[in-house]
Design a protein around this nucleic acid. Sequence first.
DNA 1: TTTTTAATATGATATTTGTCATGTTTTATT
DNA 2: AATAAAACATGACAAATATCATATTAAAAA
Lengths: 225, 225
Amino acid sequence: MGKCEQCIIKQFNSLKALTKDELMRISGCKTSMTIKKGDVIFEEGETLNGVYCVKDGICKLSKLSANGKDQIVKMVVKGQLLGQRSLISDESSNLQAVALNDMEVCFIPKSEIIEDLQKNSKFSFEVLKEMAHDLKEADDVIVNMAQKSVRQRLAEALVYIHDSFGTNPDGTLSVLLSREDFANIVGTATESAIRVLSQFKRDGFIATIGKQIKIENIEALKRVE
Amino acid sequence: MGKCEQCIIKQFNSLKALTKDELMRISGCKTSMTIKKGDVIFEEGETLNGVYCVKDGICKLSKLSANGKDQIVKMVVKGQLLGQRSLISDESSNLQAVALNDMEVCFIPKSEIIEDLQKNSKFSFEVLKEMAHDLKEADDVIVNMAQKSVRQRLAEALVYIHDSFGTNPDGTLSVLLSREDFANIVGTATESAIRVLSQFKRDGFIATIGKQIKIENIEALKRVE
DNA sequence: TTTTTAATATGATATTTGTCATGTTTTATT
DNA sequence: AATAAAACATGACAAATATCATATTAAAAA
């Protein structure tokens, strides 16, 4: 089992603010685990007993709406933490987390991390900064959902996924999402998402290889209105 | 000028976690101010030099969308803080704040409060809890925007405003919003918001006295689908 | 490989929402 | 009080999106 003190992943999140001693203690009680693509990491309403540090892979955070559709609220990648919000509010999870890839994560028990949050103000300030960033992003998503068309939102989602999560050697998006996932990010019916993607393909903005998507003209996607 | 140590407002926000000494220091450098209804407290993109503690009144936080419409993201009332997010991220404001009532606020300079955030971990943990709560609410708004109809969103907005901000003696909502404000909360065209309100009136869910709104059947509004 | 199942795709149509025009009421100003 | 300006209201129509039906294709299982 790897040691937190030597783990490079923590450079990308607020755990970097912990002292060497704190990291050694965390290291001693953490659990490394592998999560398979499609597996549920935690359910909406579930009580979380700690946070996950994502060492590899990517997952989606979604919430079930009254109409039976899942809305994807955020995607969490390698380097980020998962579950901090619920931990801090001391509430059950507001969202469901499902792996989009095979993932490697470390689970850190609540008791250990809460103590550091309350004592190490450098650490809690780092977590605070991350949360402030997430809140800004969430506000921006609200405005987009409320004011932009499905076509615009889908174009932006493609650009976001391309820029944030990168591409495979053949140029296809490295995160493989179903058409339903795209619909659930954008907040529309699966058929509508498919129709818009088909249109983008006809326009030459994207190409598809099976369900894989390759962005052919990112500037055109950015210009979509 | 009032003293922070004796101010009851702070019981409603994270300032309660400050020590007596810290409060006395804050008290010495804060500025009390009155803001008139309709006045802009800060603009989107403006650099904030501190936080506001709302002693009385209410304001809206909104963001201008590319299509020229303002989207109201949150409302801040008596007892709450304003501007913490930008302060923590050390970025210019993502949102515009406009008073919906005459307001009384205290302005606390950034330099004073940042110091406490970094040194008093009890305080930063309280701010963290507030931010976590805001983030949860924002996630819920995203899901509503994406998955619910204008009619549902407007019904929920009325219930929310009723339950959170209360009513006048005559039963009308104590926060007086224009039809345009309602449209900007719900994320729809002003005409659409007006139409839905008219329908609610015809259905007997609400009554209107000029632009004032009185909720007649809150249960029916909660059941709207 | 064959069969079965799930995902993707598209047409037809209904519903929701936006836009523009225009009239009415309320509020502010002279 | 008279006038002007803003906010509210509603009709007519257009555009966007959802829904249902049904192919088609791709993936999984036998």
